[in-house]
């Protein structure tokens, strides 16, 4: 709501400055919480702040990060994409299957299919005027069905033997693995796209107020279509990279991934109502989820039920701290 005020009419410069300050805290609330958690963990567990452990967390988070980048764009338009977990699984299975024709095919095939799924969902949302929640829920179910259908009910797992593709998933640049590099590059591209380009302004404007955007002559439908295509692309790419990483297209991966991605985006300060979002925040949200998981493993003696309670409670605390932080700045 605050985001569209400037476009709705001339605003005073002090108001603009305050808007900006609020925006900064909203994007930096999650990084601040992340920093606190990392510092506390570093002092509590001797094996936490080690190079191996930190690079592990980065690598483990990189696949979710790629999915969450696309999800951020969708949520900024006020939409949601529940199909990413299934698209992730399909991307992995297709990549593994297509790897018999070489590593290029293994990356191109999932991306094309992911884009097509995005076009279908985006068109239904943009021109069909249907609720994103329902459209992408249908996508979640249907795409998971496709994954099971092409893998013999989930009993066949295509394996990856192509050395280049395995290298992309498992190799790296210095001690940073390729999936991490790819995730960070996409993050930078996404930040430029969202904050420095006309397209990004369109995305934010549509999420702020669809009516105002239409009145201003923005191509609302095209913007909506494009974010679902982007999300289809990032989810299938993450799935393909994950397949390269695990050397196999396991059909049962990605269940519940959409919820992790949505949580990461929201923890990062992007509003579920749309119109405001931060990819730096999304990165922090993704890393927070990774660090929480890692800390639970550092404790190393919790049962699965206690683990669920701890991670749920942890997330709740994070959101409360963040809400308090951004509210104080606003006053």
């Amino acid at each position: 709501m605050t985001a569209i005020e400037p476009s709705a009419g001339p605003a005073s410069s002090s108001q603009l400055a305050r808007e900006r300050a609020v925006g900064v805290v909203q994007s930096f609330g999650a990084p601040i919480v992340l920093a606190i958690v990392v510092i506390v963990a570093a002092f509590s567990f001797p094996t936490f702040f080690t190079v191996t452990n930190l690079t592990n967390i980065l690598l483990q988070s990189s696949f979710l990060l790629i999915v969450a980048i696309g999800m951020t764009f969708v949520i900024v338009t006020g939409g949601i994409d529940l199909s990413v977990g299934s698209v992730f699984a399909l991307g992995g299975v297709l990549a593994a299957y297509a790897s018999q024709w070489g590593w290029v095919a293994a990356l191109v095939v999932p991306l094309v299919v992911g884009a097509v799924i995005g076009v279908i969902q985006g068109a239904l949302v943009a021109w069909g005027g249907m609720a994103p929640f329902i459209v992408t829920l249908a996508g979640l179910l249907a795409v998971r069905g496709i994954v099971l259908a092409i893998t013999n009910g989930g009993s066949t797992t295509p394996l990856i033997t192509d050395p280049v593709l395995k290298g992309i998933g498992q190799g790296g640049f210095a001690s940073i693995e390729w999936p991490v590099v790819i995730g960070l590059v996409l993050l930078v591209v996404g930040i430029v796209l969202l904050t420095r380009s006309r397209t990004g302004q369109g995305v934010i404007a549509v999420g702020g107020s669809e009516n105002a955007s239409t009145l201003m002559g923005l191509p609302v439908a095209r913007v909506k279509l494009s974010v679902y295509v982007l999300s289809g692309l990032t989810a299938s790419l993450a799935g393909a990279l994950n397949a390269a990483y695990t050397s196999s297209g396991v059909p049962v991966v990605g269940v519940g991934l959409e919820l992790s991605a949505i949580s990461a985006v929201v923890i990062g300060g992007t509003l579920l109502t749309g119109g405001k979002g931060s990819l730096v925040g999304t990165l922090a949200g993704v890393l927070l989820l990774g660090v929480i998981q890692n800390v639970i493993n550092q404790v190393g003696s919790l049962t699965s039920s206690v683990q669920s309670i701890v991670s749920g409670g942890f997330l709740a605390v994070v959101v409360i701290i963040q809400t308090v932080l951004s509210r104080q700045q606003r006053l």
């Binding site: 696949f63 695990t246 493993n297 190393g300 003696s301």
Partner: peptide
Amino acid sequence: TTNAQSTLSKQISDIQDMISQ
């Protein structure tokens, strides 16, 4: 002890976490 909660990627990270510990 770790629990992957039926998520394959979590089992991979669980094992890596234990190795780094």
